[in-house]
Design a protein around this nucleic acid. Structure first.
Lengths: 227, 227
DNA sequence: GTAGAGTTCAAACGTTCGTTTGAATCAGGA
DNA sequence: TCCTGATTCAAACGAACGTTTGAACTCTAC
C-alpha cells in the first residue's frame, strides 16, 4: 500500500473540480491553464483529460456539480412553502427569499468552496462564449419556469411582459451583487468582513428586490407619447 | 496617390478600436486574438502594437474612448438638473434617470457601435482580471462620488451604508440588464426587437430602481435577532 | 527631387496552450 | 501469484498566442 492509496476513490476528480472552481473564479476560464490547474489540484497534467475528456467538459462539470442541487433545492423550497401555505397565495417576498436564499446559503457555507462558486456563477451569466451561456440557461430553465409560475400566482394583476422584465432585473441584481463585490468598495469604503454577513445581505437584497418587483406599473402609452 | 491614401489620418487606429469593441464583446478579451482583430480591422498584425503598444493598452483605449465622455456627460446632466432645480432638492427618480439615460442613449445610437460597447461594459464589471476591474473603477470614480453625493442630498434620512448597498444593487441591475439580454429570452419568449426599445426599457428600469432605492428600511436589529 | 518622419508590411521570435501518447503503477479478484 | 482494468506519470505534439524586427512604402516640407 503506497501513499497514494489513502485517497478515497475519485478524490482526484474532486480535487480537480475544487481547484477549477477557485481558479476559474480568480482568473476566468481562458486564463486558467491546465498546467496551473492540475498543479493546484496536485494532479498530473493529463488527469483532466482522463477524468473529464476536455477542458470544456471540466467547465460543464464544475457548474453541474453545484447548480443542479441548488436549483433542485430552490424548487423543493417553493414546493414546501406552497404546501405549508395550503390554499393561501404566497407573498412575493416569500418567493424571492426562496430564490435568493439558496445563493446566500451557499455563500455562507465557507467550508466547501461555495462562495467561490457563487462569484464564478455571477460572472458567467455574462460570459461571451455562447456554449457557456447556453449551458447556464439549460441548467436554470426548470427553476426559472417554476418561479415564473409562482410569481404569476402571487401577482395575477401584473402583465406578462412586465413580470418577465422585472424577473430579469431581479435576477441581474442578484447575479451582479454576488459577483462584483469590488464595486461596493468603489462607491464607498466598506469593511470586507461586512460584505458577506449573509443574513444582513439577504434582508437588504430581499427588501430591494421586493420593492422593485412591486413598483407602480408605468403607463406604456404615456412613455410612447412622451417620445 | 494609391488606394490607401484616401484614408484620413489615424483611421487605422479607429478601425482597430471599432473592431476591438465588437470582437471583445463577442468573444471576450482573451479569446480575441490580434490576428483575428487586425484582420477584421483590415490592418496589419503589427498595427496594434505600433499604435497602442500592446493588447492591454488597446483594451484600455477601447474603454477610455467611450467611458470618459459618457461619465462626463452624466455629471454634466446632474449639474444641469441641479441648476435647473434652483434650491429644490432633486428627486431620486431624476438622479436615476440621469445615470441610466447615458447608457440607454448610447444603446440607441445604433450607427456607432455604442450598443456593442454597453454590452461589453456590462460584462467587464465582473471581469476576473484585476487590472481591468481597477481600470473600470478608476474611470467611474468621479461619476460615482458625484452621484453618491446627489443621492445623499435627495435622501438625507437614509443611513450611509444602506445607501451604498442600494447603489450597488442599482448599479448591478443596470449593468446586468444591458449585458445579459439572453436571460430575458430564458425567462420567457420575447421578441428581439422589443428588447431594446430604449425608451420603454428606460421607463421600466427607472421604475424598478426607484422603487428599490426607496424600499422601506429594514431593521438591522430584527435581522440579527431572527438569526 | 530628395530627406525624413510616420506608417505599413511579411516574416519570424520565443512562449504557452490543450491534448495525446505509451509506459509505469495501482488495487482487487481469480 | 498473476491477471486485469483503472489510474497516474513524464514527455512530447502541433497549433496558436502576443510581440518584435527591419525593410518597404507613403506623404509632407524644403
Amino acid at each position: 500500500m503506497n501513499l497514494r492509496s489513502v485517497k478515497p476513490p475519485h478524490e482526484t476528480r474532486t480535487r480537480i473540480l475544487d481547484a477549477a472552481e477557485e481558479l476559474f473564479m480568480q482568473h476566468g476560464f481562458e486564463a486558467t491553464s491546465m498546467r496551473l490547474l492540475t498543479a493546484k489540484a496536485e494532479a498530473n497534467l493529463a488527469a483532466v483529460n482522463y477524468h473529464f475528456g476536455s477542458k470544456d467538459a471540466l467547465i460543464e462539470a464544475v457548474f453541474r456539480r453545484r447548480l443542479d442541487p441548488m436549483n433542485t433545492g430552490r424548487i423543493a423550497e417553493l414546493d414546501r412553502l406552497e404546501k405549508e401555505a395550503g390554499g393561501r397565495a404566497l407573498s412575493p417576498e416569500e418567493i424571492i427569499r426562496a430564490f435568493v436564499g439558496a445563493s446566500l446559503r451557499m455563500i455562507e457555507d465557507a467550508k466547501s468552496g461555495g462562495r467561490n462558486f457563487i462569484r464564478l456563477l455571477g460572472r458567467t451569466y455574462t460570459d461571451p462564449q455562447k456554449h457557456i451561456r447556453s449551458l447556464i440557461g439549460q441548467l436554470y430553465a426548470p427553476a426559472m419556469s417554476r418561479f415564473k409560475a409562482a410569481f404569476e400566482r402571487a401577482l395575477p394583476q401584473m402583465p406578462g411582459d412586465e413580470l418577465v422584465w422585472r424577473m430579469h432585473f431581479m435576477f441581474g441584481t442578484l447575479a451582479y451583487t454576488l459577483a462584483a463585490t469590488d464595486t461596493v468598495q468603489l462607491i464607498a469604503g466598506c469593511k470586507p468582513e461586512d460584505r458577506y454577513d449573509a443574513r444582513l445581505l439577504e434582508a437588504r437584497l430581499t427588501a430591494f428586490l421586493a420593492a422593485g418587483l412591486l413598483a407602480p406599473l408605468h403607463n406604456a402609452a404615456d412613455v410612447k407619447k412622451a417620445a
